[in-house]
């Protein structure tokens, strides 16, 4: 029974309106401001950017929009390099996460039913502990006189310590380590739903296990693969802490470039332009993610 009336209407407006207002004010408007300030010029004042519009006597006098910040980004090899390096590091890390995470998710999905819960819990648990401190632990493992080198030297596998910390290698390890749970969880969710009778049917028809995997398991876990890949790729592109702590001087990623421009150069318009460029790079994967999420929810309802 639905009671339609002014009172109910008012309540509905409140339920939608409060979170809507919050997100508009503290999410949408700030993002629009980033776009606006990316078009304005930097100045040494507070706030450190020129106003885009100038008003006098209530009328708009000048509009000072310029693409100078974006032109600067494209002309500076540092930023172009950061752009491609971010995409490369995030992309390769996603693939490595998939290669490690897929067998893990499959292993958990095929474990005895009463063991799946604890196994899954063990994947989630590191995610709840401090991300920063786990990345810091890798500094102790990877540094020149760190644990890994000590172990390899003691075993006689290497004569000189490997230089891993402050190189791209350490960034890959850090990103794969930090985002692996985000890959395993959606993969597990789609693999767990897989009907085992399909695999039995494939086996009955004489398909060897690898063929059954390619023909049945892999295609049916595609939503999990895409969701997991997005959950790793998108945050990895904008990652700041991992390249800063584990990476070297030549590891330039967009998130780190943005912070450096913002904090050291204090050029807010240039930082905003970098943010816009980063969003542009992420627009396609984000749209894909949203589309897929919508489709999965559609499946769930039917």
């Amino acid at each position: 029974m639905r009671v339609a009336g002014p009172r109910r209407d008012w309540g509905r407006r409140l339920v939608v309106g409060l979170p809507f207002l919050w997100l508009a004010l503290f999410f949408l408007v700030p993002l629009l401001m980033v776009g606006k300030i990316s078009l304005s010029e930097s100045r040494s004042a507070i706030p450190p950017y020129e106003p885009l519009f100038e008003f006098a006597d209530g009328a708009l006098v000048t509009v000072r929009a310029s693409l100078a910040n974006f032109i600067l980004l494209f002309e500076d090899d540092l930023y172009v390099g950061a752009y491609f390096q971010s995409l490369t590091i995030a992309g390769l890390s996603t693939v490595i996460c998939l290669l490690i995470g897929y067998p893990m998710a499959l292993g958990i999905a095929r474990a005895r039913a009463d063991r799946r819960g604890p196994l899954l819990l063990l994947v989630i648990l590191p995610f709840w502990t401090s991300f920063l401190i786990r990345v810091y632990a890798w500094m102790g493992i990877l540094k020149d006189e760190g644990l890994l080198n000590g172990l390899l030297l003691a075993l006689g596998l290497i004569q000189e310590p490997l230089i891993i910390l402050n190189t791209d290698w350490a960034v890959y390890i850090g990103i794969v380590y930090s985002y692996l749970p985000f890959m395993v969880l959606p993969l597990y969710a789609s693999l767990e739903k897989l009907d085992p009778s399909l695999l039995e049917a494939a086996a009955d028809l004489g398909a060897p296990p690898w063929r059954a995997f390619l023909a049945v398991t892999l295609p049916l876990s595609l939503p999990g693969i895409v969701a997991g890949s997005m959950l790793v790729f998108v945050p990895a592109v904008g990652e700041y802490v991992i390249p800063d702590l584990l990476g070297g001087g030549d590891t330039m990623m967009m998130g780190k470039a943005l912070w450096d421009v913002f904090a050291q150069t204090r050029d807010w318009p240039a930082a905003s332009a970098l943010a816009v460029a980063m969003l542009a790079a992420l627009a396609l994967p984000m749209a894909l993610f949203h589309h897929l999420q919508g489709r999965l929810e559609g499946d769930g309802r039917s």
Binding site: F20, P30, M33, V34, P47, Y240, W268, M278, Q293
Partner: peptide, 24 residues
């Protein structure tokens, strides 16, 4: 728009969110 606004922070890089809020 509402569900888009609710989903976007999940995938928004932290540096962008931080910068945007600071500007605000």
């Amino acid at each position: 728009l509402f569900s888009g606004l609710l989903a976007a922070p999940l995938v928004m890089p932290e540096v962008i969110l931080g910068l945007a809020l600071l500007l605000l």
